[in-house]
Simulated assay, not measured.
Amino acid sequence: MSTSYSTWPVVLIPYNLPPWLCMKKSSFILSIIIPREKGPGNDIDIYLQPLIEKLKQLWAGVETYDVLRKENFYLRAALLWTINDFPAYANLSGWSTKGRYACPCCAAQTCLKWLYNGKKFSYMGHHRWLDGNHRFRF
């Protein structure tokens, strides 16, 4: 929080490898580095646009040569998921993670209470996700 500079890496990981290989540093693909004084915020789509175009091409398939088999094949790829913090989730998904409907899982059923003295929302209903006999539920 006290730094005046921020760097956001965008890393791709191929998941068609065995688990002990896909999570090795040598399998990570650093596709984008976003350097800014602050986080990219709502401008993140501008930085991700070239990556999105490449992923669209890979979704349709790109003709590639296999050296081992000595033949061409169509290489395809898909984005399975993203791993990010809550503010980045808001920027990527377009869902507001602030205010009345901050929880993307609960949406309109979010249990909240407006704290008049603090002038903010308090989210109190997440105990419902606990087991029925959990001591924190009551």
Rank of each mutant, 00 (worst) to 15 (best):
K119Q: 14
V62N: 09
N42Y: 13
K56D: 13
C111L: 14
R100W: 05
M23A: 06
D66F: 05
Y65S: 10
F136S: 00
A90F: 09
R135S: 00
P18V: 01
F136Y: 01
I33E: 10
R137V: 06
Q57G: 05
Y101V: 02
Y89S: 04
L115C: 11
W20H: 09
I83F: 01
I44P: 00
G125S: 04
Y65I: 10
C106Q: 08
K70P: 06
K38L: 12
K56C: 12
D131R: 01
Y89F: 14
N72S: 14
Y15Q: 10
C111Y: 14
P19V: 03
S93G: 07
N133F: 04
D131L: 04
G94F: 10
W95G: 01
D131P: 00
L12H: 03
L112C: 08
Q57L: 14
D43H: 15
A77L: 05
A60K: 14
R128S: 00
K70A: 15
T3A: 15
K24C: 03
P50N: 07
S122Y: 06
P104Q: 05
W59D: 12
L75A: 14
S27T: 07
S122L: 08
L115E: 13
W8N: 01
A107W: 02
L130Y: 00
S93Y: 07
C111T: 14
I34Q: 03
P35T: 09
K38C: 11
A107S: 04
G94Q: 12
S122C: 07
W20L: 01
Y47W: 11
V10G: 01
N91T: 09
S6P: 00
Q57E: 13
R76T: 11
Y65L: 10
C22T: 06
S96I: 07
I34L: 09
G39Y: 06
Y101E: 04
H127G: 05
K120F: 07
G99S: 07
Y116T: 14
